[in-house]
Simulated assay, not measured.
Amino acid sequence: MKRLALGLGLAAVAGAAVAFVATAPSPVAPERLEAISELEGDAQAGETLFWAGGCVSCHAAPEAAGEEQLVLSGGVRLASDFGTFIGPNISPHPEAGIGGWSVAQFANAMLAGVSPDGGHYYPAFPYGSYARMSDQDIADLFAFLGTLPESATASLPHEIPFPFNIRRSLGGWKLLFFSDEPRVALGGDDAQIARGQYLVEGPGHCGECHTPRNALGGFVGDAWLAGAQNPEGEGVIPNLTPGGKSISGWSATDIAYYLESGFTPDFDSVGGSMVKVQKNMARLTSGDREAIAAYLKALPERPNGWE
């Protein structure tokens, strides 16, 4: 009996050690970080990525409008089943924001969800999508962020209850759900569709709202962009695939025009949380909006993800 107890104890210790190692933060490979650090960031190109990513939606102060949106002082609250996440200050302020970061530290955050102090970020910060971004785009976005106004506003802590406040457990979440592979396999070599896929699955992170999640907060794999329950508790987020009723009857031209103007083919206008998204999309080039539309029309049909 003593041997059995000892064996079980040793097995438990060994299992805990394996779990501890397996859930450790895994930063970007050093050689890739070195390559990114040597790139010259183009702030003008980075501005396109800034709007594609909708950075102001989470990182500008609540209710900020106009030029005030470019002061990324944080404070937006994102309610979820796991607690409330609060957008941090990512202005160029050297202490309160990310002004003291290197481009390598920024790349680690964007591509691996790893903070400058080596910890896991919660996936409310959509690095699961940003992981698909190119090295040059990371450098360009970092360059643009550095041109924005500084804010000394301190970031507020997330309001996350036990056990979700144990960040080490996010290593397990990453093992299960984190990947930089394409979300959906599309045949052919159409450059326009490929560009749209990059924007939607990468910097645009459209699936973060338009794809249903399982009990652990991971995407339901076979329901990419099929729509989901609104995490704020009211209504649903539309199905963007040709299998839903939301935009399945729209042409690619209709979709591109909606992203530009906010008007639907039947002369309705954008509403709800999509208002901010549409305003961001309107700042993209017409070519990028058309690429997004082409990608959405090329998706396989999926039934509504919330049903």
Rank of each mutant, 00 (worst) to 15 (best):
M1L: 13
A12V: 14
V13H: 09
A19M: 11
P25H: 00
P27Q: 00
R32D: 06
I36H: 02
S37Q: 10
L39V: 05
L39I: 13
L39P: 09
Q44C: 00
A45G: 14
G46A: 09
G46D: 12
G46Q: 15
E47H: 00
W51E: 02
A52Y: 01
A52E: 09
G54W: 01
G66R: 05
G66P: 11
G66L: 15
E67S: 08
E68L: 09
L72F: 04
S73G: 04
G74V: 03
S80G: 12
D81S: 15
D81W: 01
G83E: 15
I86N: 14
P88T: 07
I90Y: 01
S91W: 03
P94A: 09
G97A: 08
I98C: 04
S102A: 10
Q105T: 11
N108L: 03
V114G: 03
P116C: 13
G118Q: 08
Y122G: 06
Y122F: 03
M133E: 05
M133T: 09
D135W: 12
D135R: 10
Q136M: 08
Q136H: 03
A139Y: 09
L141K: 12
A143E: 11
F144T: 05
A152K: 11
A154I: 00
L156H: 12
E159I: 01
P163R: 07
P163A: 15
N165I: 02
G172W: 13
G172T: 13
G172V: 12
P182C: 02
R183V: 10
D190R: 14
I193N: 01
I193E: 01
R195N: 03
Q197M: 03
L199S: 01
V200C: 13
C206I: 10
G207K: 05
G217E: 06
G217Y: 02
G218R: 12
F219W: 05
V220R: 14
W224Y: 12
W224L: 05
Q229S: 02
G233T: 11
G233L: 07
E234I: 15
V236I: 00
P238W: 05
K245M: 05
S248Q: 04
G249P: 14
W250M: 13
S251H: 06
Y257W: 01
Y258T: 07
L259N: 02
E260P: 08
E260L: 15
S261D: 14
D268I: 00
S269M: 08
V270F: 07
S273F: 14
M274W: 11
V275N: 08
V277G: 07
L284M: 13
T285L: 03
E290I: 00
E290G: 06
K297F: 05
A298R: 10
E301Q: 15
R302C: 04
R302L: 14
P303S: 15
N304E: 14
E307Y: 03
